[in-house]
């Protein structure tokens, strides 16, 4: 039992992890086909896990309805929506359009209910960006002041009108004989200090990912098997 629960997964992880890492250095077709095969296996296993997901959704919401827990009406909607999509999907043969090119009932249900709802959620992001920016840009310290100044320059630099004011009206595009546009300043901010910080994070992430991969391949990190050791 311990072998099946602990040692076998660790062994599989070691073998597959080592082989997949070495595959990067082996350019043969065999190597590429093996990598593709492993990816396909992951997809197949994921499909079985998807069944677990459906069962999980059903169990959680059915239990909520049975116990009449707070918000159980939402669970009813989830179950009804789930059943409606499945039934209509079967009736439409899983196709979004009919043979004559018109949307099927499944396509209509998807494109006229789910897509607009998701677009609405996405649209809220615009308001959240504004509120998050408001909180971040309050110049309470020197660092926050630098952030605010940089943000203002980048925001203004992306507005055509500001460029017009900068170059046309203020005439300050010529600094020490060098023609500098507002967009040049923005490009420098994004391409130099910003890119440097991003690359710093990327280096750290790469090292962390390699260290974590090594820990997983050699069985030092086992928490993903359940438990911390």
């Amino acid at each position: 039992m311990v072998f099946l629960k602990r040692q076998l997964p660790l062994l599989i992880c070691f073998v597959i992890g080592t082989v997949t890492a070495l595959q990067y250095y082996v350019p043969t077709n065999f190597s590429a086909e093996m990598s593709e095969g492993l990816s396909n296996w992951y997809i197949i296993v994921s499909m079985f896990a998807a069944l677990l997901g459906f069962v999980s959704v059903g169990m959680v919401h059915t239990k909520k309805i049975q116990r009449q827990e707070p918000g159980w009406a939402y669970s009813t909607l989830v179950i009804l929506g789930f059943l409606a999509m499945v039934i209509v999907g079967f009736v439409s043969g899983g196709k979004e359009t009919t043979p004559d090119g018109r949307p099927s009932s499944y396509g209509w249900l998807y494109n006229c209910t789910l897509v607009p709802l998701q677009a609405t959620m996405f649209a809220i992001l615009g308001f959240y960006v504004a509120s998050a920016a408001f909180r971040s840009f309050r110049a309470k310290s020197f660092d926050a002041g630098v952030l605010l100044a940089t943000a203002v320059i980048v925001l203004l630099g992306n507005v055509p009108f500001t460029n017009q004011v900068w170059a046309g009206w203020l005439g300050i595009h010529d600094v020490a004989g060098v023609k500098i546009e507002m967009t040049d300043i923005v490009s420098w901010l994004i391409g130099t200090p910003n890119a440097a910080a991003r690359r710093g994070v990327t280096f750290g992430v790469a090292l962390g990912a390699i260290a974590t991969s090594l820990k997983i391949i050699f069985g030092i990190e086992r928490a993903y098997l359940g438990g911390g050791d």
Partner: peptide, 25 residues
């Protein structure tokens, strides 16, 4: 930020084996 996410498990568990990998980062 970034690699601190990978360091978290080692940091919280305080296991010597995990902390060694943290130092390597």
């Amino acid at each position: 930020i970034g690699e601190e996410l990978y360091a978290a498990s080692a940091y919280l568990s305080r296991e010597p084996l995990q902390l060694g990998s943290l130092r390597s980062q």
